[in-house]
Amino acid sequence: MPGMYADGGGLYLQVSRSGSKSWIFRYAMEGREREMGLGPLHTVSLSEARELALEARKLKLRGIDPIDARNAAQVGLEEVLDSFTSRSCALSLKPGLRRRRRCAWTEGASAY
């Protein structure tokens, strides 16, 4: 049956009309209602969902929006991976290039 089923502490199991199930953390921040997806039921267990909701409540208690914190962490990870992969590809996969060509290749790759 579709709907939202509360577990407590803002944690809900969301069941869609198609029957898919996912964990949602619902909270209010600065007068705004928010819903943070924690993952599908087939991947995230109840105990894991409870731990994720607890971490989100702790962030909220410190005045940090859990969704903003997650997004910032993902952006930081992407920047690290992007800089690592473009430099390592240029230096490891193209060892025969002259220094000038290698630098140009690295700069071109970092544009993407």
Rank of each mutant, 00 (worst) to 15 (best):
E55A: 15
Y5F: 15
G19E: 06
Y12C: 05
L77A: 15
P40W: 08
I67M: 02
G8K: 10
R17G: 01
L52W: 01
K58W: 00
W105I: 05
M29Q: 11
R34S: 11
V80W: 12
S18A: 15
P40R: 03
R32L: 02
N71D: 08
R50N: 03
R102S: 08
G63I: 12
A28T: 15
G76H: 07
R32N: 08
A104T: 13
K21C: 15
A49H: 08
L54I: 02
T106D: 08
A72R: 08
K94N: 06
M29L: 13
K60V: 09
L97I: 01
S110A: 06
G63N: 11
C89D: 12
I64A: 06
M4A: 15
F25H: 05
L46H: 04
E55H: 08
R50L: 06
A104V: 01
R98D: 06
G76Q: 15
Y5C: 05
A73P: 02
E55G: 10
G96Q: 12
A56N: 00
E107K: 05
A53V: 00
R98T: 04
R70S: 03
L11Y: 04
P95R: 08
S45L: 06
G19V: 12
G37I: 09
E30D: 13
Y112L: 14
P2V: 03
G96L: 07
L11S: 02
S110W: 04
A53M: 00
A104P: 01
G76A: 15
Y112S: 11
A49S: 06
L41T: 08
M36D: 02
K94E: 11
S92G: 13
A90M: 12
L41E: 15
M29E: 07
C103Q: 13
R100T: 14
A56S: 08
A56Q: 02
G96N: 07
S45A: 05
M1Y: 06
L54E: 12
E35V: 07
S47I: 08
A104C: 01
S110Y: 00
E30Y: 04
E79N: 04
D82W: 05
E51S: 09
L41C: 10
L91D: 15
L77V: 04
H42L: 05
R62G: 02
A72C: 00
L81T: 01
W105L: 12
V80S: 14
L93V: 03
D65L: 01
